[in-house]
Amino acid sequence: MKSNLHSAAPGLLRRPVLLLLALLLPLLRAAAQAPGAQPEMAEALRQSGKIYVVVAVIAVVLIGLLLFLISLDRKLSRLEKEVADER
């Protein structure tokens, strides 16, 4: 399991990035389109481009939390192995 995690790490890192790019590139066009009249949305944020800052900050926070979960998971696996080996 441990070796699995190690060997998979670079591939895993690349795949989400590619997936995100594939999903986000069409959005850039959608975000650039001119707003209609109708209810007020966060146009100002989008026009100045600052919404991406918020997205980046949230993504970093989420990545940090998920990395913590992953490391906790691996530490637990190691401890479980140790306890099992001692028997």
């Binding site: 995100l20 959005l27 959608a30 975000a31 949305m41 919404i51 991406y52 918020v54 997205v55």
Partner: peptide, 18 residues
């Protein structure tokens, strides 16, 4: 991990009904 990162980014940027 992949889904949550996608949701955080696309959830804020994808077009939604007005």
């Amino acid at each position: 991990v992949v889904l949550l990162l996608y949701v955080a980014v696309a959830g804020l940027l994808m077009p939604v009904p007005r």
